[in-house]
Measured scan of single mutants.
Amino acid sequence: TLFEALYDYEARTEDDLSFHKGEKFQILNSSEGDWWEVRSLTTGETGYIPSPYLAPV
């Protein structure tokens, strides 16, 4: 399942991933609570992002 960003987000740590509203992601790991490890389909980068900022496509 692909997810889309509902809002912009600016990374706060080196493990976070900055992204823009509308960017699409592949979920790599969603078992860590509200922070999911994802791969951006736009940039190819991986990192953690807050799951409340995402919605299924």
Score class of each variant (00 low, 15 high):
residue 2 L to A: 05
residue 10 E to Q: 12
residue 37 E to P: 02
residue 31 S to Q: 11
residue 47 G to Y: 05
residue 33 G to C: 12
residue 43 T to Q: 02
residue 8 D to K: 03
residue 29 N to G: 10
residue 21 K to A: 10
residue 3 F to S: 02
residue 54 L to P: 04
residue 54 L to G: 03
residue 32 E to T: 12
residue 11 A to S: 12
residue 6 L to V: 08
residue 22 G to C: 05
residue 25 F to S: 00
residue 8 D to C: 08
residue 21 K to Y: 05
residue 46 T to R: 11
residue 43 T to H: 03
residue 6 L to R: 06
residue 9 Y to R: 05
residue 33 G to Q: 11
residue 33 G to R: 11
residue 26 Q to I: 15
residue 54 L to E: 04
residue 43 T to F: 01
residue 18 S to R: 04
residue 9 Y to V: 03
residue 11 A to K: 10
residue 40 S to L: 05
residue 38 V to C: 09
residue 17 L to A: 03
residue 9 Y to L: 04
residue 36 W to K: 02
residue 16 D to C: 14
residue 34 D to N: 09
residue 7 Y to T: 08
residue 3 F to H: 06
residue 22 G to L: 02
residue 9 Y to C: 07
residue 37 E to F: 15
residue 24 K to F: 11
residue 40 S to I: 06
residue 17 L to W: 06
residue 50 P to A: 09
residue 45 E to A: 13
residue 52 P to A: 15
residue 29 N to Y: 06
residue 2 L to D: 04
residue 1 T to F: 11
residue 31 S to N: 11
residue 24 K to Q: 13
residue 21 K to D: 01
residue 14 E to N: 13
residue 24 K to A: 06
residue 16 D to N: 11
residue 6 L to C: 08
residue 35 W to R: 15
residue 43 T to Y: 01
residue 17 L to I: 12
residue 41 L to P: 02
residue 29 N to R: 07
residue 29 N to S: 12
residue 25 F to I: 01
residue 6 L to Q: 07
residue 44 G to Y: 06
residue 42 T to G: 07
residue 33 G to P: 14
residue 7 Y to H: 09
residue 49 I to R: 00
residue 52 P to N: 15
residue 26 Q to K: 08
residue 54 L to H: 03
residue 32 E to K: 13
residue 49 I to V: 15
residue 42 T to S: 12
residue 15 D to E: 12
residue 12 R to F: 09
residue 21 K to P: 02
residue 6 L to F: 04
residue 14 E to Q: 12
residue 29 N to Q: 08
residue 22 G to F: 05
residue 43 T to V: 00
residue 19 F to G: 02
residue 12 R to E: 12
residue 48 Y to G: 02
residue 33 G to V: 10
residue 25 F to W: 01
residue 6 L to W: 06
residue 33 G to W: 10
residue 12 R to K: 13
residue 42 T to E: 15
residue 30 S to Q: 13
residue 1 T to P: 13
residue 20 H to V: 14
residue 56 P to T: 06
residue 28 L to A: 02
residue 26 Q to H: 10
residue 24 K to N: 05
residue 6 L to G: 03
residue 19 F to R: 00
residue 14 E to I: 12
residue 47 G to Q: 03
residue 22 G to P: 00
residue 51 S to V: 10
residue 51 S to H: 09
residue 44 G to D: 05
residue 53 Y to F: 11
residue 2 L to Y: 10
residue 37 E to W: 15
residue 38 V to P: 00
residue 54 L to Y: 04
residue 54 L to F: 07
residue 12 R to G: 09
residue 16 D to G: 15
residue 4 E to W: 08
residue 55 A to F: 09
residue 38 V to K: 00
residue 41 L to K: 03
residue 1 T to Y: 11
residue 18 S to H: 08
residue 19 F to H: 01
residue 24 K to S: 05
residue 10 E to A: 10
residue 40 S to Y: 03
residue 46 T to Y: 07
residue 54 L to S: 03
residue 14 E to T: 13
residue 5 A to G: 02
residue 51 S to T: 07
residue 12 R to Y: 09
residue 39 R to E: 05
residue 51 S to F: 11
residue 3 F to N: 00
residue 55 A to T: 13
residue 7 Y to V: 11
residue 54 L to N: 03
residue 26 Q to G: 02
residue 32 E to F: 12
residue 13 T to H: 14
residue 20 H to G: 07
residue 23 E to H: 07
residue 8 D to T: 06
residue 53 Y to R: 06
residue 15 D to K: 15
residue 39 R to W: 05
residue 2 L to T: 09
residue 32 E to P: 08
residue 43 T to L: 01
residue 27 I to Y: 07
residue 50 P to E: 09
residue 41 L to N: 04
residue 33 G to H: 11
residue 44 G to T: 02
residue 2 L to W: 10
residue 13 T to I: 07
residue 54 L to C: 05
residue 28 L to S: 01
residue 45 E to F: 10
residue 52 P to T: 15
residue 50 P to D: 06
residue 20 H to A: 11
residue 16 D to F: 14
residue 5 A to K: 00
residue 53 Y to E: 05
residue 57 V to R: 01
residue 12 R to V: 13
residue 1 T to R: 10
residue 12 R to W: 08
residue 4 E to Q: 10
residue 36 W to C: 03
residue 7 Y to N: 07
residue 25 F to V: 03
residue 15 D to R: 15
residue 5 A to H: 00
residue 33 G to I: 10
